[in-house]
Structure formats: structure tokens, C-alpha cells
Design a protein around this nucleic acid. Structure first.
Lengths: 254, 254
DNA sequence: CGCCGTTGTATCGGCATAGATACAACCGGG
DNA sequence: CCCGGTTGTATCTATGCCGATACAACGGCG
């Protein structure tokens, strides 16, 4: 989409929103709040009141969700206290699943990333090779995609010659001191580079190291390290380092 | 939420949907498709026709988005060909950002994960220690969260004693042969464990290795490796291995 | 100058969703 | 045996979003 060869560190700021889709029905934050409220109140009526929502709607919403996701709430009419409702195992599982998705999404908004522009050189199964400013890189492409149908764009797979972006999360990259022995896990050298530290942004217990890679050092990787690792490595601007990342943590987008 | 100590490998199946939020306005797949169509058609009118959507609506939608996200489309009324529209730099950037978010979401739906239940032992800045079935584990928590307001749940941070889940993506874990020398990057041993291979699911070029960890071996890690690594490691059920993962790629959820 | 296709702007109707309200059914417990 | 609070179910209304339509404004270009 963009023509520049390198746009590393396009920190994805801003908020995100996630939803799980099954059978055309969306489970979103609103639904998560409802299930959580049912769990706490012990009844759909109480949950609706707590959330300031219509009880009848809340009930029908739960039924709609259950049509798609299976039993979520075990409801009992009559009995002690007039009855009540509680989450089923499936309901708890779905809620947990949503929370994890939300956590991942939250993380991608907070964690820096490295973005490289390139062209697909070859595709082999779930993996693809991409030629970028720093040479050939290997990563995962999303074969069939997880599109919800609202944006087909270029659905399907990638093919050699396609212009794509390569995204590498800062949390997926490891940094070494350049003078250290090569690591023992003789990983394919494909996703390993030498570079120079061009900056360290120290957080409270997590720091972001910026490493320039390539001939002209125009590609800047962001690497997340703990304060512990930061102290051990004692990195400073100008230091020569090696970085490495897993191919399976590298994503083709586009 | 769930009481079981270990629920590793709750593969997050199903579809997902993502949206960027700014100023209360959501940028979703539908909007992405619209911008993409404008880029291709060279006009909002053409884009609307292409998508089978109302031209007036498309225009007002773009204006609503621009109120929140800044200029997205440079429009010209009159002139050669009657005028036209093309994406601004901001529009291209937003589209790319959305694509990356979508790619991450697609990946989390396709990539296996390891989920551990535990309780927070301590919080130190952006990191937190969690006691789980396989001992103490360190990971990132989302301090302020990225909630969109539809589900506050337990907004804010985690605190010692809180019950949480720990999520570790299979793409963030590295596996070694047990008899190999320890890796040179003397990473804190916190997020390293020894285990036994309990299964290998071979894909076309990516395989998922299941590694049982802990006394009772009830916690099963999923590790993604390339076919190349699979051939090199030559793992088989029963093999003793070591696994390692970055604390910065570990997420607390809940 | 007028043609043309586009961007702006306003308005109407349809449709889906949610709230509001009402009422029946249920059942343990006093 | 009735009370109370809950689950079911039906219906009306309000709201918001979208498509459809119509018309004005614009500005190269023939």
C-alpha cells in the first residue's frame, strides 16, 4: 500500500475492539459484560438491572448467542429465590476465550512492532519468503484468512510477486550481544540479523531497544526486553548486536 | 473464571473481528473495504457503486471517520473527469494499521496457545509474577487496558492474589533438545522449563509440538516450529526437551 | 458556454436492534 | 396455599443506520 521500503516502528496506537463470530452471530464486549453480570448477580434479571439494560432483551440476546455458541447460561425458573441463572461450562469457556482475544488485541496496541515492506519471493505451505530491504525473510501468511466477510480485499493466499508487509512484534524478537557465541539452537539463519543499537527506551520493568539493520541501516527493529535482561546485556547506543526471531511469529499482511 | 489449574491448548477456534476505535468512532472491515475501493476506483462514487452501497452514505461515513481519525480521503469536486478522490497518507496509514491488526487477529485464531491458570504473586511495573501449576511464571499485564468501554469487567491493573490466566502463544515458544547445551543468552530461568514431547502435529511446513511440563505433566505447551526445525530437531513422542519463551510475549488475562 | 461526472447536502422510508411494558408459567418456602 | 422473584413470551415504540432519491455546486474540457 505504501511505497516506502521501510516503515519500521509504526507503533499501532489507539484502541481496538474484538469480537468472536460464530454462525453469523457476534460475541462482543457488550455480551461479555452481560455474561459477567449474570455470573455475579446469579440471575439474568439482576444482571440486566445492574447493567441498566432491558431484561427481556438480555434474555433474548442470550438465546440468540446460544443458538450460535451452544449453551452459555443454565437458567432455572421457579424455586428458591424464584429461580436464577448461572454460567455453564461453555459460557465460562467462551468468556475466557473472549478475554484472551481481548488481551492479545490490547497487547498489539501497546507493544511496538517492526514493519517491513517487501515482495513475496515464494510460498511453501503455511510459510512464505519475502524479499525486503534487509534481505529475505520468512514468515506465516494467513492462508484462508479469518475475514468476517466485511472486507474481502485480497482474500485467499499470497503469491510470488505480491507486495506485502511483514510484521514482527517487538515481543517476538530476541537480542544478543554481538561478541557472544552463536546460539546453539542452529536455527535457520534466515530470520537472524546483525545490527547496531540506535536507542533504548527504558520503561519501568520493560525496555524497548531499537536496532538498525541492513546496509544503510534504514530498517529499525524494536525489541522488547525485561529490565533484568537490560541490565545483563547493558546495551548502549552504538553497540553491535545480533537479533533473532521465530519465523512462526512473523506475519505477512496484505 | 475456571477452577481447573491447567487448561492448556484451548485452541481458539472460530472467527474473529477487529476494529480500531478513536474518539468513539469504530473503523471496521466495512470501512476498510470502502477505503480500499476508493483507492482502486479513484472516486467515492465509483467505490460505492463497486460495493453496491449508497454513495451519499459512503460519503457521510468517510466524513464521520475523518472527524475521528483525521483526513483519510482527498476529494476534489469538479475538474477533469468531474473530480475524484484518492487516499491521503493518513488514509493509507490507517488502512495498513487495520490490516496489521486483522493479521494479528487472524493469527491468534489460527495459532495454538498455552493457557495456565494461576494467581498473581507480585506486580513489578509492566510485568507480573504468577504462580501456576508449573511454578512461577513472568509475563506482561495490560496496565490500563484497551477496553472500548463496552465491557469494563475488572478494568485497571492486576494485584497480588488475583486469579488470572496466563496466555503463551505457540509462536512465542522455542524448543530445544534436552541434551543440548544451555543457550548462551543467559536469560532468567524463570520462563524456561524441561518437559517431554507428547505429540507432534505435522503441518505442511509448520508443525505443532506438544510438550508436557511439570511434576504430573498435566500442563501441555504447544510450540510452533518450521518443518526445517522439525527436521533438525527430529522430535518424537517421549523425547526430553527444554522449552523457553520470552516474558514479554507472555500475557496475563483476567 | 454548456456538458459531464464528481463532490456536497437534504430528506424520506425501510429495517434491525433495543428499551418498555405487560402477562403467563414456574416452584421453593413460609 | 399463597407469596415472591425469576424465567419465558408477546407486543408496541423509539432510535439509529442504511439505501434511495433528488438537487445544488464545482470545474476541467471540448
Amino acid at each position: 500500500m505504501d511505497e516506502t521500503a521501510d516503515r519500521s516502528g509504526t507503533g499501532a496506537r489507539g484502541r481496538g475492539r474484538a469480537a468472536l463470530i460464530e454462525d453469523g452471530v457476534e460475541f462482543d464486549g457488550r455480551d461479555a459484560a452481560l455474561l459477567r453480570a449474570v455470573h455475579e448477580a446469579g440471575s439474568v434479571a439482576g444482571a440486566a438491572a445492574e447493567l441498566g439494560r432491558s431484561r427481556a432483551r438480555a434474555l433474548s440476546r442470550i438465546e440468540a448467542l446460544e443458538d450460535a455458541f451452544g449453551t452459555l447460561v443454565e437458567r432455572q425458573r421457579g424455586g428458591s429465590g424464584g429461580g436464577g441463572s448461572r454460567l455453564s461450562a461453555g459460557g465460562r469457556a467462551l468468556l475466557d476465550r473472549y478475554d484472551r482475544l481481548q488481551a492479545v488485541l490490547a497487547a498489539t496496541a501497546r507493544v511496538p512492532e517492526t514493519v517491513l515492506d517487501g515482495t513475496v519471493a515464494g510460498v511453501d505451505g503455511e510459510l512464505a519468503d519475502v524479499d525486503t530491504a534487509i534481505g529475505r525473510v520468512r514468515g506465516l501468511h494467513d492462508g484462508t484468512g479469518v475475514s468476517d466477510g466485511t472486507d474481502e480485499s485480497e482474500a485467499g493466499g499470497v503469491a510470488p510477486g505480491d507486495a506485502v508487509q511483514v510484521r514482527i512484534g517487538a515481543d517476538a524478537v530476541t537480542v544478543y550481544r554481538g561478541d557472544e557465541a552463536v546460539d546453539p539452537d542452529a536455527t535457520s539463519a534466515r530470520n537472524r540479523r546483525r545490527g547496531v543499537v540506535v536507542g533504548v527506551d527504558a520503561g519501568e520493568t520493560v525496555s524497548t531497544v531499537r536496532v538498525a539493520v541492513g546496509e544503510t541501516e534504514d530498517a529499525v527493529f524494536r525489541v522488547l526486553i525485561t529490565a533484568e535482561s537490560a541490565a545483563r546485556l547493558d546495551l548502549d547506543t552504538g553497540d553491535e548486536v545480533a537479533i533473532r526471531w521465530k519465523a512462526t511469529a512473523t506475519r505477512l499482511v496484505g
